[in-house]
Design a protein around this nucleic acid. Sequence first.
DNA 1: GCTAATTTCGGAACATGTTCGAAAAGTCAG
DNA 2: CTGACTTTTCGAACATGTTCCGAAATTAGC
Lengths: 232, 232
Amino acid sequence: MPRQPAPHGRTGRPPRTSRAQILAAARRLIDRDGWERLTIRRLAAELGVGATTLYHHIQDREELLVLLLNDHVDRIERLRLPSDPRDRVIAAATALHDALADWPWAAEVLTTDGFLGLLDASALWMVEAILAAAHEYGCTREQAVDVFRNVWYYTVGEILVRAHSTRRRAGDEPPDRRGAFSDGFDASQVPHLAAVGDRWPALAARDVYPRGLRVFVDGLLADAVSENPPGG
Amino acid sequence: MPRQPAPHGRTGRPPRTSRAQILAAARRLIDRDGWERLTIRRLAAELGVGATTLYHHIQDREELLVLLLNDHVDRIERLRLPSDPRDRVIAAATALHDALADWPWAAEVLTTDGFLGLLDASALWMVEAILAAAHEYGCTREQAVDVFRNVWYYTVGEILVRAHSTRRRAGDEPPDRRGAFSDGFDASQVPHLAAVGDRWPALAARDVYPRGLRVFVDGLLADAVSENPPGG
DNA sequence: GCTAATTTCGGAACATGTTCGAAAAGTCAG
DNA sequence: CTGACTTTTCGAACATGTTCCGAAATTAGC
């Protein structure tokens, strides 16, 4: 309990808890018990502090998760991006995707209101890189934002759907009927679905993101510059 | 209380509640009080039944929402699709998108594990239509599934991000700092973000889905058939 | 009728995120 | 030292989704 003499010019009861301590404890808890068990109360207990105390240092659970996410992204090395603008968009989007994808609880925050606005500079470089590359490719600023947003939607969707498709409840129950498609399809009503049949789970397990991303980015860039006057 | 004499060959206490009644009550509740106030307890109260009783007719809240969603999609007219395969993919995807987008609480279920598998035939025709059109365009069945999945990710992402960006808490609070991007950007660190600056919210409000979808579908179809032997 | 089996019902209880209000522990001016 | 002010802490309470388990209400076999 570092009972410091209170920094100068500060009034009020001295805090026993800090944001940094909370984040550290949260990481500890996640490492030890898994992220599903990160609850406000457990976190408070880990800190030896009342549960409601945390609400003086974070706004709510969502903000806590975003802070953890920022912290995670911070540690990701800022990889060198290709010089070709098109490749740069793809590399940055992939970095963004991967950073979020191996963060199992990213899905819980990804659609937070104004999520991007909550990221700090260390995460925003990926956004910046996409805007810059699109602009360098010949997009206007507005078009660059559109490119980013489209890529962002695709990326978020892929991560979210995937995260929730893979979440096998810890205990391995027998495959209940909510595993991808049920195999019984009415071949007269939905012939193509029936033709795919029970191969769907296997097909759905394949990773289509890298290729889909390339295709999408190529299309978006070409579409954008196609309407601009040449020779910028 | 229709105390029917219990259909033949059936034993046990006769049910006082049915799935249909539950769904009807849920719709009533949503229409009357808004969907945010649809809770298990309120729903049970509306039916004059214990809260836990509902769990004998639905598995959990998520299933209830999917059932409601199915029911909603049922009522959507099965619009006539264009004959051109490419246009048909786009039309079906747009129908899927729109059906989900004006269903404000779709966001809560969209990423449910095996969501697509929970939809019934009336909703699956859109999926079927996309597979069929892609196949007709020249894709293999596997490629058609990939096309669908890519479009699905994009669509889900757009809906989710949008739903959560627009969720202004009922009371119109002053614009807190989580509205899109905050305007203060370090122009030396993220020059392009800084250049866009406070125009971001306005730009982010524009609907890029229709155009993005067209671009994406064109790219996906072209990419798929480009690797197939000609003259199928 | 009586008992067993079967199915539905629903109250109690639990863990969760969060709000409220009051008590605690400091600083500062006099 | 005293009283006003400020900030932090935290127990009580609330609504939520959900599980447990016993009670209730019916049919089937005798």
